[in-house]
Each structure stands twice: as C-alpha cells, then as structure tokens.
Simulated assay, not measured.
Amino acid sequence: MSREWILPTLGAFISWGLWSFIPKITTQYIKPKSAIIYEVMGMMILGIIILFSLQFEVETHPKGILLAIITGILGFLGAFCFLNAVSKGPVTLVATVSALYPLVSVVLAILILGETLTVKQIIGVGLAVFAMILITA
C-alpha cells in the first residue's frame, strides 16, 4: 500500500494542532467575531498563492464547486464555533473534544460511502468515544 498520505497527514496534524491552540491566546486580545475575520484573511492569502501556482487555471464542475463551497461554509462555521468555545472554556478540553470530529467523518464514510473498518479500527473508534466521555465528565 502506498504511504503518500503520511506526510500531508502529519502536516494537517501539526497545522490543526497549532490552529486549535493559537485561538486561546488570540481571544485574549480580540473577540471571536473579529478573530474569524482575520482567520479568513489568512486563508485568502494562501488561496491567492495557490491560485497563482495554478496559473489561474482552476478546475470547474458544478457539483465539485457546490461541495467545495459547502465545505468552506462548514469549515468557517466550525472555526467560529471553536473560537467561541475556546474563548469561554479551557483549550485543553475544547481542543480535545472538538478534535474528535473525525468520528462524524467515520460514521458518514460507513453509511454513505460504504467504507468498512477492521476490528482494530472499531476498537480505536470506541476508545476515542470513551476518551471523550472521560474528558468531559
């Protein structure tokens, strides 16, 4: 099996780890509604860089565009909810509980995409749920 997914996955791991920590400090200086605007500005900067790297030749497909826009809306909504949560609660709990969002992806992948889990993976998912219960209790 190809392991090409490992490096970008580690990149996401590190980026999202920092992404979930820095807002706790940010919201000590500005409110979540202001912070989200600056986060979007950061995304736009990277988006423009990627647009230039594509030489302004962006792929188009109506379903792909719609799904990408929905994904952007959901990402924004999640980030805004996270900013509000971390401004009111401890980053140790907010980051840990919200970082278990892949459980939603796993359930949807099984129900909609027909993906399967091995017994070991099912145990891992169960432990993640158990961890959430322990952390929030």
Rank of each mutant, 00 (worst) to 15 (best):
I45G: 02
N84P: 00
T136K: 01
I112K: 13
I110C: 03
E59Y: 11
S15H: 09
K63W: 05
T71Q: 02
T118Q: 04
E4Q: 14
M44S: 00
G42E: 03
T27V: 11
L113M: 10
L93Y: 07
I112M: 09
K31V: 12
I70N: 10
P23H: 06
L66F: 15
P23T: 10
A68T: 13
I110V: 03
L108Q: 12
I50W: 13
G114D: 15
I49K: 09
F56A: 07
I37F: 10
L111D: 11
T71N: 14
Q121R: 03
A85G: 13
I122G: 13
V125F: 08
A95F: 06
T60W: 15
F13C: 04
G75A: 02
S98Q: 05
A12W: 09
P32V: 08
P23R: 09
F76H: 12
E57G: 08
A85V: 02
E4Y: 14
G11P: 06
E115N: 01
L46R: 12
T71P: 00
L51V: 03
T27Q: 06
G78L: 14
F76M: 11
G17S: 08
G78S: 12
L103V: 11
V119R: 11
V97R: 01
S2Y: 13
T27R: 03
Q121T: 10
L103N: 07
S53R: 00
A109N: 04
A109I: 00
M43K: 13
P8G: 06
Q55N: 11
M41W: 00
Q28W: 07
L74D: 06
L66I: 10
I133M: 03
E115Q: 15
Q55I: 03
L93A: 00
V97F: 00
F52K: 11
M1H: 05
G17Q: 14
G42D: 12
I48R: 07
Y38C: 06
I65N: 05
F76W: 01
I49V: 13
P23M: 06
I73M: 14
G75E: 01
T71L: 05
F56N: 15
F13K: 00
G17N: 04
L46K: 12
I110Y: 01
E59L: 04
T136C: 04
L134A: 01
V125N: 07
T26F: 01
L134G: 10
I22V: 10
I50K: 11
W19A: 14
S105D: 11
I30M: 03
I122V: 05
V106Y: 06
A99S: 14
I49S: 10
I14A: 07
L18S: 13
G47M: 02
I36V: 11
L54S: 02
V58F: 13
P90S: 08
H61C: 07
L18N: 07
R3A: 08
L103P: 04
T92I: 05
Y29I: 15
N84H: 15
G89E: 07
C81G: 00
V104P: 14
E57I: 03
I69M: 15
F52S: 05
G17F: 08
V97H: 01
G47A: 02
P8M: 06
L113P: 02
A131G: 10
L111T: 11
I122D: 01
I70T: 09
I6C: 02
I48G: 06
L7M: 15
